[in-house]
Amino acid sequence: MNQSYDTSKKIRHLLAGIFTLSLGASLIWLILEATGMPLTPDLGYVMNSVGDTGSINVVTAILMDYRGFDTLGEASVIFTSVAVTAAILAEPVFTLERPILSIITRRAIAYLVPVFFMFPLYVITHGHLSPGGGFQGGVSLAVLVILTHVVFGHNLAMKKIPFSLLTMGEYWAALSFGILGLLGIFTGVGFLANLATGVPRGIPGQLLSGGLIPVLNLIVGIKVAAGLSSLYITLEGNPRRKK
């Protein structure tokens, strides 16, 4: 009985392997076919982005300006998944303190934490100048929040970074993203318009340049940081199953 079950399982795995390999092979064929098309998909983003948006990082220019609507959508996906997680799991509670690191480690990390915070802040504020942007910086901030939880224990971390602050930060950031987009509607250009609304461009290459792009980066950074860290806290603060 058990033997035959094992055999059928093996056969099933083999069939699944053959199926997925054929899927992969057809995908390879399709990709090669698609990239073999004689075409230069140069839409002039690289040529025009500095003039159009004032951002040196073309990827940020596309994310925050040319295709800013996608970014709003993706920020809403994060927003909704945080809400879904909060709806599935209960409000986080930390009753049992898990074993935390030794005092020396904690002291050492406590001195290092301000240094750690430099990196995400740099990434967020220089999103239009160097690699990175709101998302990368925001996730790094969220990872730092997780770090404080792991190193200093939940109770202290929750005292320093209260959950309601994260929630409110996320809601306000999401709301301000939408309202900032409406600015373009009022000036008659279109939703999420940047330089065309009359915002000064600044000198490309400097910190204050790119019109609304740094502002959007900041908003997205706050939103992603708050959202993802409250995701972690909700998951971690979920009580273990009672035996």
């Binding site: 990175g132 995701l231 273990r240």
Partner: peptide, 29 residues
């Protein structure tokens, strides 16, 4: 580079933390 940074912080940092937490919560009998 942008994608590399995002993958590093999300894939290797954030998601690993989530996965470890979830695995910890679902460990048991």
């Amino acid at each position: 580079v942008d994608v590399a940074m995002a993958e590093a912080v999300i894939g290797a940092g954030f998601l690993t933390a989530l996965f470890v937490t979830a695995a910890d919560k679902t460990r048991g009998q």
